[in-house]
Simulated scan of single mutants.
Amino acid sequence: MKILYDSVMPYAEAFFGHIGICEPFELGKISSEALANADVLLTRSTTKVDASLLECGNNLKFVGTATAGINHFDTAALDDKNITWTSAAGCNARAVAEYVLAALLYLAEQDGFLLKNKQIAIVGVGAVGKQVADIATALGMQVVLYDPPRAAIDANFSSSIFEEVLQADIISLHAPLTHNGQYPTKHMFNSDVLNSMQSSQYIVSASRGELIDTQALLDMNDDCPQLVMDCWENEPYISTDLMSRCRLATAHIAGHSLEGKARGTSILYDKLCAFLGVEKQHSLAEFLPQMDHSHELTACTQSFAHQNLNQTSLSSLVKCFYDIENDDSFFRQHMAKSESITPIRKNYPIRREFDAVDISVDDAADKLTLSSLGFSVS
């Protein structure tokens, strides 16, 4: 069995080596001819799997993406060739939620407010939205959940109405991109919606850039809401004019933690083993390395044994794991000389998630809060 996999999938050779012959491919260098003798194709979101690519893939039985989204899959073309396809839904949910937390703490620090006094609306309550909601709840924020499609199929979930979303102080976007149906998400934040908002409100774009109409934002001049943009319309060639209006701007890297990427590999491994009826021989815990402890990180984690948790100390702790300002600064510097975000995404120095290091905490309430935020506490 021949398995082709994207070279940036962590630990792919280690996971899949016992199943078949594994061969990596580089971004942009996979061709239809390369699939001629392949049985399995494992990609990330940068590989568009369509009828053209599949033309020579007559032996393909299984195609998977080590990402949560499948917008790069032509599922009809895959179905036409009777190819089983799947994704790693939820693999980067924790990383995206931690990105949102870092952004919220940054905004709160810069603008001088307490998050516990703010209301946040979460648009799209899937794997990512659920974790963002859990974090917001742990911070004491008032949480509005908006996901009518989920409410239609989940009797245990109740969705707020869109008008309630637009009244929130902060709106965090985690919905998939859809074009049809009763609740299409393409440009759900169009000119009318955006003009109904206040410039004091915040929008965090961390799902699909097409949920927001870029031109509508640009037409608002200085009246648009405060923006945190990780996902952009027309990626990888984004609007640098819009970037200049953002409070924080990053290169669609919210989910790019080592754990998030490796979890994508691990999920596809589990699914391929199930598809083939092969017994699993590996688990993710075998491969994740221990996190290097910098002096700053050690000082941050040790300090929680001797101080009470508050928004200021939490912000300092989060920065030790992930300083979102660094990503913003690097992104702006790169985009001043480039039109594409691809090089940043390809060479992004993968960060670790909050639970990569144990934190010693004495206070029981602080321990519970930090645990709810995703930290590993003892």
Rank of each mutant, 00 (worst) to 15 (best):
Y202D: 05
K2P: 00
I171K: 02
A36W: 06
D222G: 15
G20T: 08
D363F: 14
M9A: 05
S257M: 11
E55T: 13
S45A: 10
D169K: 09
I21P: 03
I341E: 01
G264P: 13
M229F: 02
D241R: 03
D355L: 07
A88F: 00
H187T: 00
G28Y: 09
L227R: 05
F189T: 00
Q131L: 14
A274D: 11
T178Q: 08
R44L: 13
L317K: 09
G129Y: 04
V96S: 05
R352S: 11
G69N: 10
A66K: 03
I161V: 14
D147E: 03
D222N: 15
D213R: 04
G90W: 10
Q333R: 15
G264I: 04
Y106K: 13
G64E: 00
W232Q: 01
Q281V: 07
A138M: 00
T137C: 05
S32M: 01
Y5F: 15
D147W: 04
L42Q: 01
F162M: 06
C246W: 07
L314E: 06
L272D: 01
I350N: 10
S87C: 12
T301F: 00
D6Q: 05
I344N: 12
I359D: 08
K280C: 13
C224M: 13
K61I: 11
L35S: 03
V165Y: 00
G255A: 06
